[in-house]
Structures are given as C-alpha cells and as structure tokens.
Design a protein around this nucleic acid. Sequence first.
DNA 1: AAAATTGGGTAGCTCTACTGTCTAATATAG
DNA 2: CTATATTAGACAGTAGAGCTACCCAATTTT
Lengths: 216, 216
Amino acid sequence: MRISELSRRSGVPVATIKYYLREELLPAGVATSATQAEYDDHHLRRLRLARALIAVRGLSVSTTREVLRALDEHSTDLHLLFGLALGAVVPTDEPDSPSDQPQEPTPADELISALGWEISEKAPTRATITDTIHTLRELGLPADWQTLVPYARLAERTADLDLAQLEDAEDPLERVERAVLLTILLEPVLLALRRMAQENESAKRHPRPDTGPDTD
Amino acid sequence: MRISELSRRSGVPVATIKYYLREELLPAGVATSATQAEYDDHHLRRLRLARALIAVRGLSVSTTREVLRALDEHSTDLHLLFGLALGAVVPTDEPDSPSDQPQEPTPADELISALGWEISEKAPTRATITDTIHTLRELGLPADWQTLVPYARLAERTADLDLAQLEDAEDPLERVERAVLLTILLEPVLLALRRMAQENESAKRHPRPDTGPDTD
DNA sequence: AAAATTGGGTAGCTCTACTGTCTAATATAG
DNA sequence: CTATATTAGACAGTAGAGCTACCCAATTTT
C-alpha cells in the first residue's frame, strides 16, 4: 500500500505519518520509484502501536522512539527489555549529586536489596524512588524505604499477573510486543484502579450521612 | 516575608513565582502597599507543594491548579477528594461517542459493578479504563474487564496501604494534603516498583545462562 | 496529454512553561 | 530628604514539543 492508504487505514494524517517517518518511529517504505514507496502490514501495525503509545498513553515522540527501537533490538530477552523501564513516568532529571565516587546506598538500593530483587544497576526506576522519598520527606511526610516494602510486595503480584498474560503468546515477537503494550498501556489503568479503590475504601470508612442507599 | 525571601527559601525564581501567582497556583500575598505584599509560611508550603507536583511528578500547571483548588475546597470529605481522580495520567480526551442517550454499560462500568465498588458516576478514571481496553483490543490483545479484576483486587490493597498512611495525621488539613501527596507523588514509584518486579520476576523465570549467580 | 497523487523537505502554527524587561510606586540607608 | 534598591503587575519573548500546511519535482492514472 502507499502512504494514503496507510493513512486511511490507520486514521493518522499523511503529514503526521511523514513526521513519524522523519522521527524514525516508522521504518521507511520500500521505494518503488523516486516518488513512490510501498508500505505493508508491518508498517500499519507499527503505526497503530506508535499512536497508542503517544495518543492513549501520552508518551513523548522521543520516548516512543526508544520503546520501538528496544522492541526491535531485544525481541528476545524479555527481562532485558523490562530492565530498560521504557517510558517511565518521571520526566525530570535533576542531577542532584554529580559525584563519581561510590556513595552510600540510596533508599532505592536499600529497598531493592531488602526485597531480594535482582535489578539492573542503572535502572532509572531507582532514581524515581529515591527522588520521591526525598521530596516526600521535604514536604514533611514520614516516608522511607521501609514504607514501600508492602507496596513492592503488591507490585510483585501485579508483575505476576502481567507475566501470566504473556503465557498464551507463543511467537516471541508477539510476546515482547505484548509485554510492552501491557506494561505501558496498563499503567494509567492501574493508577485509575488505585484512585477508584481509594475512593471506594474511603467512602466505606467514612460514609456520608445524607448519601445513604439511593432512593433516587 | 516578601517575594524575594519566598524565592530564596523555596528555590523558585521570582519570575516563576509571579507566573504561578498569575496562574493561581498561589494565593496573592497581603498587599501592604501598592508595590509590596507580604507572604507567609502558608505560601511557602503551597509553593513547595506546587513545585513537587510540577517538577517531581510532572503535572501540568493547569492540572496542578485544579489539585490545589480541590485541596482548598474539599479539605474535609476525603473520599470526595479521591473521587475527583486529580491529575490522572491520561492526557487525551477523544469524545469518541458524542451521544446523549443512556448507552450500554462500558467495560469500566461492568468492572466496577463486578467489584462491588461505589464509584462516582462521572469519574474520569472510567474513561481511562474503557479507552485502554478498547485500544488493547484494537492492537490484538485479548483484553476485557474480567482481565482487570485481579489487578483491581491488588489496587484495593494498595489503597488500604495508602489510607493507613493517613491514620497518623490528626489535623484534617494535614490529612487531605497527605492524601494528595501520597496519591499523586507515589504514582511514579508504584509504576517503578512494577517495572522492577517485572524485571526481577522475568529474570527469575528465564535466567540468562551466562549471568549466573554472581561471581563478580 | 491532462489531472491527480506521491515522496521529501521546509516552514509555520499552537500550546506549555517559563523568563526577561519595563514602569511606577515604595522601602530603606545615609 | 535624597539616593539606591526592591517590588507588584503587566507584557513580550523564548524554547521545545507535536503536529500541520505547503511546495516541488516526479511519477501514476485517466
């Protein structure tokens, strides 16, 4: 198919597809002449995937590029893919400690070793944890890595569910793509579930007197 | 204190503080003359809170404004505050169905009633869930609301942990502020924990042959 | 042969989050 | 009481992200 059909079938404007091609979110089509190129189902699939990450999940174009690149390069090695912590949430990078020497373990390090987890050293998720604990403490909350241990145990079980979803996929390519989609697209959902569970639980514990069993 | 001291104590540039005043992230100081205003610890606290939401969590200024406004207005009614699902992750709003008539229940509705949760009707989290299921299915994943039930159960327990953190706060103002901070600032951490748990679990299930028990 | 489409590229547009500058009024120091 | 510094408030400017519109030459299609 040519670009207009790719556009029609994906719902993405031609100009945007061209932009994505420039940004290397999509591989170039096979050029059949100076002004013609042929795209196939692989491109369509890629495009839909990219759009989902950008429009549904809200990833930036550059983050999406990294995710897609990692998908290509680590189509095996699932845990290596996970270790990249692709498209993690935290956008800021304040190099609070520009040191080189091996400093004392951060709260994240302590947490991870207390959990007995095997986590890559350079995982950006470590910084997220340490930074957040730091911020919470600055704001007067009693936060430390011990607080996070029960959360981490629940995260383990969440990850179990995630990995179970991948069992049915036999094709390894299918498998990594699913892993990425489940990991990234489910993130807003998991947070939404938490919000709703908070609302539900809080309402249960402190019921409004006037909002009884609805007679409406 | 005046604005320069507020700036010095918070680390936020004066120009940025002025911007936040215009954007109503901070209440105006008490004007002592035409060109002078007095700020107090409340302003400082607010400013630190706003900066944490914006710089650490990555919320937009407008979302942050809504969060802070909700904090003021619902300083009691914790579950009402939760129900707002402040600063939820999903940035897009595609009005996919511009209908008025009561349509069939969405996957989110079915999930919520299956869980037995009491959730406000207009919670934006519902749309997040429905949209994501829709997207996953479009991309060929076998996703439906049943898939999310076990995730929701884990979310319940996460929410339990969240609410337990609020127990020690006696002052209700302190309480809602903690609720907001814990809910919002912990989000990246929870996702980071999930990523790491995935990596850990995946490595455990599919150990690399060469990366045995570390001799390093 | 005429009209439509395409690839490739560049420029422009909108939005967000600041940042810098200006002015008049006021505070403060001497 | 004068000189210097600071401030509130307004507004313009900036940088980056994510598109979007336009142009042109080279084909296709009719």
